[in-house]
Design a protein around this nucleic acid. Structure first.
Lengths: 137, 137
DNA sequence: TATTGTTATACTCTATAACTATA
DNA sequence: TATAGTTATAGAGTATAACAATA
């Protein structure tokens, strides 16, 4: 059977990303977190007090989709919204959130190691540079 | 602002794939096709008569999701299902489907060229090899 | 006027279970 | 019994429009 798409970088990119995300989602299952939630948690951990709008811009997530995501994290006691002024929220991790961020960090490290183990060492730096060129504005 | 994830290959992979797919979806808009539909069309064009189940396996699309996809393509007069035996379908492109596959091919070529133009030439071969290692079974 | 956050809604992709018809 | 295809359904990501409150 012929695969007319496998030699296209864009197609390989899609397949590789799908495989990676499926594996990462499985790695997050024991923590009961989605990829998007884990991403937001890590970002708040690195930027305590960040405004919701800035988080949206940094992650390319629309505010309409960020609202329910943060509400879930807040209702789990992981994140706290703190008014910065009358209309914007600063985001903080609770102690539980900090602990969970540690766990997520471990899952990420494990996932990334398994991922890069599949790639021959001489390609790794090139892969990283190329991928960044593809999405960085 | 700190980005605690940007140095992770898995994260860069996700962001790059999202950016690529969004651009490709825009490129397909004039053809009124989704990415998954375009993918299936190209695959049938390269493998006329392929059974539905084999197409599912090759693209990692579940049969339950392939059925409505093919029904859409068939109702647009692009694909024809032809019984192979009492329970399996061979898939063929109609003349309209062949013409549409040509258009899709052009959109893919344009998209892939724009994508790789963002990557420095010395990284391109490495990128392709690395991506294939990440999703090939 | 522009920005922040929210609500409602819809579309796409993906996943599972249950079912039929056939091999 | 196993396989091919279908149906129904649900979850998750993403997109737009409309809105209230505030800068």
């Amino acid at each position: 059977m012929k695969d007319p798409l496998s030699h296209f970088p864009g197609y390989a990119l899609r397949r590789a990303s799908n495989a990676s995300m499926a594996a990462f989602a499985r790695a997050l299952e024991p923590l009961n977190m989605r990829i998007s939630e884990a991403t937001v948690l890590m970002f708040i951990a690195a930027n305590p007090g960040i405004a919701q709008a800035r988080l949206c811009a940094a992650l390319d997530i629309q505010s309409a989709n960020m609202t329910p995501l943060l509400t879930r994290l807040e209702s789990q006691g992981l994140v706290r919204r703190e008014p910065l002024d009358g209309r914007s929220n600063g985001l903080h991790l609770t102690p539980s959130g900090l602990a969970r961020a540690e766990d997520v960090n471990g899952a990420i490290a494990q996932h990334e190691a398994a991922l890069m183990a599949r790639v021959a060492p001489e390609h790794r730096a090139h892969l990283m540079t190329a991928l960044e060129a593809l999405w960085t504005h």
